[in-house]
């Protein structure tokens, strides 16, 4: 009997098959991962609500956005680019001004007795406000908090706030968050734009 060679399988079309699969996956899939601003909505109001105690004017930073996408911040017209700086000044109140938020002394790990601002940012928008402006306002306010936290983290721990978050140093992160708690309150919706 003659010695039989195992015939070689022609692999030339293998590439075509693989390409076909590749194209299929390219078409049916998306690469994008979902990024976004994470927020927590307030729980629904019970039907008979007790009026919450009023918050002093000096502790509230009022941001109004109207149907024409104009901003009114603390009674003054403002551009979106200025919002972050004025929010930062409000939250930190570095000169302890009388018309900016009051402070309450609290015991915070790592920091000991610290003055914590009683600040609240109140955001109110109209039904006609564009979503783009709303997101920008949310973003600028978040940036104000983030920058203050970052400054504090660098001063206290010598590391950026993001680094502390990324490396999972939860205690330090929560201590910093206790010093600058993010309090953005959204008013119950109103229709003031007349449309």
């Amino acid at each position: 009997m003659a010695k039989r060679d195992t015939p070689e399988i022609n692999a030339g079309s293998m590439a075509d098959i693989a390409f076909l699969l590749l194209v299929f996956f390219l078409v049916t899939t998306t690469m994008d991962s979902d990024y976004g601003l994470l927020r927590k909505l307030p729980p629904p109001l019970p039907p008979e609500t007790v009026e919450p105690p009023p918050i002093k004017d000096r502790n509230v930073f009022v941001v109004l956005a109207n149907a024409n996408d104009q901003l009114l911040v603390e009674g003054e017209v403002m551009e979106i680019s200025q919002l972050k700086e004025s929010a930062k000044e409000f939250i930190a109140n570095p000169q302890r001004k009388e018309d900016l938020p009051a402070f309450k002394v609290e015991e915070i790990p790592y920091f000991g007795k610290t003055e914590v601002s009683k600040q609240v940012i109140s955001l109110q928008n109209d039904r006609g406000t564009s979503y783009d402006l709303y997101i920008q306002v949310q973003n600028e306010l978040a940036r104000a908090y983030d920058e203050l936290r970052d400054e504090l983290a660098r001063e206290k721990f010598g590391q950026s706030f993001q680094y502390l978050v990324d490396t999972g140093q939860k205690k330090k992160v929560s201590a910093i968050k206790d010093v600058y708690p993010q309090r953005i309150s959204e008013a119950e919706p109103k229709n003031t734009g007349g449309n």
């Binding site: 990024y35 976004g36 927590k40 909505l41 729980p43 928008n125 406000t129 979503y131 997101i135 919706p189």
Partner: peptide, 25 residues
Amino acid sequence: TEMGIVTDVKQELRKVQALKISYST
């Protein structure tokens, strides 16, 4: 989009206690 419809959706989400949201950007 105008905020009106977004606000309505948010109010609806509050009613069913779906409080964790993310504004996709």
